[in-house]
């Protein structure tokens, strides 16, 4: 059975709770999780990837239970772009992307020509090829996000989980990431994205999952989820949908 299937995943830690979340990402589909801070979006993503163990429920990737897979098998099926990365050693940019090859290497292996070529291609896609030999610690925050995405893409995972990959990116770079990710879905990769900006999510997603307080409030096509009343309630502020020459834009109602 193809698809990334989340079935009744629940997890609690202190006051914080993710309550029996179910959702599905089909191959070639881009699904965005939106919602206010503290809704449990990032936690859900970690539960799905398996770095956090859920108290109940399960996650199936093309029929495999994620939490029964070894980290290596899991990493081949799922790519993950973490929200924060603490730079440590000043690896060269190219080497850093090549670290993404690790799941495909044996215990004693090291990346070969094939991985190098792919890594350079990815660097080119993200406009980082001129940095290939520079220490990655010298990159800007935005470039670092692109690099983390490139690293996750090196092994061509079937599903890609991204935790707010746009958080430090300017508009151009944010679009670059989203367009790249969108391109991947055409090749059959399923993408699950945690994203802050509902408008960007609306533009690029096949489906939106709206979360609040650890629950899924709405799950559907972007135009289904984009409901003034629903969004205003979930975000706790008054929001309006504006029709802007044929495009729907979500705007907060401002009192000046």
């Amino acid at each position: 059975m193809r698809g990334l299937l989340v079935e009744g995943v629940g997890f609690s830690y202190g006051d914080f709770e993710v309550d029996e979340v179910s959702l599905k990402v089909n191959p070639g589909e881009l699904v965005s999780i939106i919602g206010p801070n503290g809704a449990g979006k990032s936690t859900l993503l970690r539960l799905i990837y398996g770095t956090l163990r859920p108290d109940k429920g399960r996650v199936l990737v093309d029929g495999n239970d994620v939490h029964r897979l070894s980290p290596g098998e899991r990493a081949k099926l799922l790519g993950f772009v973490p929200q924060d990365h603490v730079p440590t050693f000043p690896f060269k940019v190219l080497d850093f992307v090549l670290l993404g090859a690790t799941p495909e290497l044996g215990t004693f292996g090291a990346p070969g020509k094939k991985h190098r070529r792919k890594a350079l291609e990815l660097l080119k896609t993200f406009g980082l090829e001129s940095y290939a030999e520079k220490p990655y610690t010298s990159l800007s925050g935005g470039q670092m996000r692109l690099l983390l995405t490139a690293r996750a893409l090196l092994t061509s995972p079937r599903y890609l989980l991204l935790d707010e990959p746009m958080s430090e990116l300017d508009l151009k770079n944010a679009l670059l990431v989203l367009q790249t990710v969108r391109k991947l879905t055409k090749e059959g990769v399923g993408v699950l994205l945690v994203i802050h900006d509902p408008n960007l999510a609306y533009l690029f997603s096949d489906r939106l999952v709206l979360m609040k307080n650890g629950r899924v409030v709405a799950d559907g096509r972007p135009d289904e989820v984009f409901d003034e009343g629903l969004l205003s309630e979930v975000y706790g502020i008054e929001l309006r949908l504006i029709d802007c020459s044929g495009e729907t834009v979500l705007r907060p109602k401002l009192e000046v």
Binding site: Y49, T51, S70, P71, G72, E73, R74, A75, K76, F80, P82, H85, L99, G100, T102, P103, A152
Partner: peptide
């Protein structure tokens, strides 16, 4: 983060 690269 090495866990994301498939290492235990």
């Amino acid at each position: 983060e090495a866990e994301l690269l498939g290492l235990n």
